[in-house]
Design a protein around this nucleic acid. Structure first.
Lengths: 246, 246
DNA sequence: GCTAGTTTCAAACAAGCGTTTGATTGACTT
DNA sequence: AAGTCAATCAAACGCTTGTTTGAAACTAGC
């Protein structure tokens, strides 16, 4: 399956030029596949979602996936790229905007966190139906050890992570670089777990069944928690201070 | 597949009595299956791991899984239960020990966190080879939306979560119950993401390639972060204070 | 209105899946 | 020594998987 993906059909190559003339009035096959795949991948995961399930839901022929995307793996990457790429672009643009607005002064942790999360929220809200589904799909992909997924995400995130690590480093000058990396890692963990898990949605439904626009509510809980964690005093390097007695 | 699982073979039922007379000198078929399944489920996930792969790695017959466990799903649950049940038991016992040692006084957040994490670390260290693999498997299971996994984990964790939520509530009396639930949720998120992801291992290898016993290092980074987050001041309920401008 | 090229389609492909079967083994009881 | 029963085994079951094929349908350009 991996071999065929690097040898796309001749039709696919010559079709690329034609692709520029889109027809926005009617949703084309490629988009219908992406929409259906996004929802089903989110619901069942990559392995458990069959192409027959996707193509049936999208009302397209089974062969359309391999024709338009080359393989199931490439379809999965296309599903992620479609929304992930603009989101990370937004994140970096927002961070830059904050930095220039501040006139060179170091940003607060809350400000940096908001630059990470606001584009994610915008994504979750704007798109008619795929939004929050996509974030859950993304959270799942984080935890997936499949090599092609990890490599893809690593490439997709590298630039953004580097930018935000530098920003956090400037906001927390008393922390060494390694500590900053760790705390950024924990931030990403709490975020992806919260966005991916079904538990967060259940909790919202439990406490605020009337809330529709619950993403802000979620962020309002999460941001102070993370900002306080980022500003925590560092632990001494050598002593087993508080978890020694088991 | 789900039907056959509730109708185990007659052999399996009558075998239960015989099971008491174990043979610890040689690893039996059931344990070999569990060990191989744990490692392969961790590496490829539930769906992508075939029974043929497991039974080949365990050097047992293909039919042995269905004979001893009933189905692939029941095998997965058995893999989780084998280590998860004792770990959660340990967590609650440790929390009780801390509480009685403190003589009724409210515990600190660090103390409660340590009661959650020390059993996890013990699990990662003690078992010869399966330890850290299992924690990664567990982290994956957290993010899996498969109903049988979510239901299983929910039941497995319900008692422990309730105990720790109560403990955190006592440690943070100024927080309302809902806020405590959220922050416990974030704590679990950062933990499971850190334990499950390959990134944490990569970071340890990058900064401390000589470290073998790297679990303490990880906890020493994570615990101050989480404790500070738990103690963070609450956000005002109504105002969009810091993330309004996008 | 024919032709060239893109897209769709039904059908089939080989391979792998979880599970079941029925025979065989081997250790124990009576 | 015969009988019992848990355990193992090779083989097959029916089914689904991702992918490929070649013809049909469609959409332009000349």
């Amino acid at each position: 399956m991996a071999l065929s993906s690097v040898i796309p059909s001749i039709a696919r190559l010559s079709k690329a030029a034609e692709q520029a003339t889109e027809k926005p009035n009617e949703v084309d096959t490629k988009s219908r596949i992406l929409d259906a795949a996004e929802e089903l991948f989110m619901e069942h995961g990559f392995e458990a979602t069959s192409l027959r399930l996707i193509t049936t839901a999208a009302n397209v022929n089974l062969a359309a996936v391999n024709y338009h995307f080359g393989s199931k793996e490439e379809l999965f990457q296309a599903v992620l790229t479609r929304r992930l790429d603009p989101m990370n672009q937004d994140r970096m643009a927002l961070l830059t905007a904050y930095e220039t607005a501040g006139g060179g002064a170091a940003l607060t942790c809350e400000k940096i966190i908001s630059a990470m999360f606001i584009p994610a929220l915008k994504l979750a809200r704007n798109h008619d139906q795929g939004g929050k589904n996509f974030l859950r799909l993304l959270g799942r992909a984080y935890a997936d050890p499949a090599p092609f997924i990890r490599e893809f995400l690593s490439n997709q995130y590298a630039e953004m992570i580097a930018r935000f690590r530098a920003a956090f480093g400037r906001a927390l000058p008393h922390l060494e670089r390694e500590e900053v990396s760790w705390r950024l890692h924990f931030v990403m963990g709490a975020l992806s777990y919260t966005l991916a898990g079904t538990d967060a949605l259940k909790m919202i439904a439990q406490f605020h069944p009337e809330e529709i626009n619950n993403d802000e509510l979620l962020l309002k809980r999460l941001a102070p928690f993370l900002a306080a964690g980022l500003r925590a005093p560092v632990q001494a390097t050598d002593g087993h201070q508080w978890f020694q007695e088991a």
